[in-house]
Simulated scan of single mutants.
Amino acid sequence: MRLRHPAGPVVHLAYCTNVHPAEDLAGIHEQLTGVAARVRSLTGAGRLGLGLWLSRRAARALRDDPAELARLRARLDEQGLEVVTLNGFPYGGFHDEVVKLRVYRPDWAEPERLAYTLDLAEILTALLPDDVTEGSISTLPLAWRTGWTPAKAAAVNASLAVLARGLRALAERTGKTIRVGFEPEPGCVVETTPQAVALLGGADRDHLGVCLDACHLAVGLEEAADAAALGLPIVKLQVSSAVEAPPGGQHALAAYVEERYLHQTRCAAGYTDDLPEALAGALPTDLPWRTHFHMPLHAAPPPPLTTTSSYLEDLLRLLVTPASPHGDLAAPLTRHLEVETYTWSVLPGPVDIAEGIAAELDWTRRRLAALGLKEI
């Protein structure tokens, strides 16, 4: 979906297809003609935006076969779908029975991550709509924190320099600018926005920045205003909510323990890498907890649990309609918004994924409309 900002720019709203388990091109085409087409119908969108996830396997196939890339672009067009952003965080196997820490490999110290991301950038220049010249890719926050060494830091810095040069060369060759956003996440080397500034502040700001995930920031207990004022380019906002448990109500989180994904959990007095550790007594129960479990934006969990949707709304307002130093409305701090609830397959109870995604997109565009944006 495209929305016109009151200051003039176009803001793109998409849903992230990492919710779907396809690892190859056949599966991706099935997504587009299946769930994505149904979501478009349910939302009534003239053009439905996708935050496309391409596994390493799918990206390599598109890189090696221009005809397949042209076929994918044609399929997007015929289905009324468009891609201005890719999710380059999961490398592959994102719907395996157990993912957990594997989602962070290869990290940015490993050459495979650099090669994959440059391939995605090349692919995105071919998938961008004809009237769009800027695309974005979200990626992991360098690495998981354990095992981080000076040698790994040096390897990461070298990779980021090569990445920036590659993106500059791509822009010169194609006339299209692709920016990569590193996504702060609890437990990682870049866990918070201050860490992002410290580790990425000297990077090429024309092509490298951050992807802010509202769920991650809420679990990190970061103030929305601080995140919005971090001073780095905000390549993309992932529109997401975490689950929150009140003091004494943490037992209800047991329904969200599952084996596939990591669910980092935090309160004001401590942190655990996964929810079972917290429920086993690692965190005090006299304080509220927030857990990295992406919750549907439009629906509240059963009491006593709630979500961080109010935090998300604050972040949307600060990023999309910031005030200028002169007191008038400034241009948005990011123009790429991606609904990223990838946990539908592990939520308690039966769900209709297409209906759920459509409801999330409607929730988001209604809030953007309240901020003065108009769908086009």
Rank of each mutant, 00 (worst) to 15 (best):
C215R: 11
T193G: 02
D204L: 08
V219A: 05
E183Q: 13
E191F: 01
G209V: 00
C211S: 07
V219S: 03
V219R: 06
L212P: 00
G220K: 04
P184Q: 12
D226T: 11
A218D: 09
E191Y: 01
P233K: 03
P194A: 03
A228E: 06
G187L: 12
A228G: 03
E183N: 07
H216N: 09
E185F: 06
T192D: 06
G187S: 09
L217N: 06
A229E: 13
V239W: 04
L232V: 11
E222V: 14
E191S: 10
V210Q: 14
L230N: 05
A225D: 14
L232T: 13
H207Q: 09
H207T: 15
T192S: 08
E222K: 03
I234R: 01
V189Q: 06
L237T: 12
P184F: 00
P184A: 09
G201D: 12
P194I: 07
A224D: 11
A214E: 04
A225K: 12
T192K: 02
G231K: 02
A203F: 01
S240K: 02
A224H: 01
A196E: 04
G231I: 05
A224I: 09
A228N: 08
A224N: 05
L199H: 12
P186T: 10
D213N: 14
V210D: 14
L230G: 00
E183P: 06
A218S: 15
S240M: 12
F182V: 13
V197G: 09
E191L: 07
V239T: 08
D213W: 05
V239L: 11
G220Q: 15
C211D: 06
L237V: 08
P194T: 11
Q195R: 04
I234V: 12
A224V: 11
D226A: 15
P194E: 11
T193I: 10
S241Y: 00
C211V: 12
A242V: 02
A196Q: 01
P184H: 00
H216D: 12
P194Y: 10
P194V: 09
E191W: 01
S241H: 06
V189A: 09
A225Q: 14
L200G: 02
V197I: 04
A196Y: 01
A242D: 14
L212V: 05
E183R: 10
E244D: 14
A224Y: 02
G231Q: 09
V189L: 09
V189N: 00
V219C: 05
A242F: 04
T193S: 01
V210S: 11
E183A: 13
V190Y: 04
L208E: 08
E185S: 07
A203W: 01
P233N: 03
D206E: 15
G220T: 14
T192H: 10
L200S: 01
A229I: 06
C215A: 13
D204R: 14
T193D: 06
D204M: 11
L217G: 03
G201H: 04
A229M: 10
E223D: 15
L230K: 05
V235L: 09
V210Y: 07
L230P: 00
A198F: 02
D226F: 11
Q238E: 14
H207C: 15
I234Q: 00
D204N: 08
I234E: 01
E191N: 08
A245M: 03
A245I: 03
T192W: 02
E222A: 07
A198E: 12
V189R: 03
D204E: 08
L221D: 04
P233H: 02
A196G: 10
L199T: 11
A225T: 15
P186Q: 07
V197M: 10
L237I: 13
E222N: 11
C211N: 12
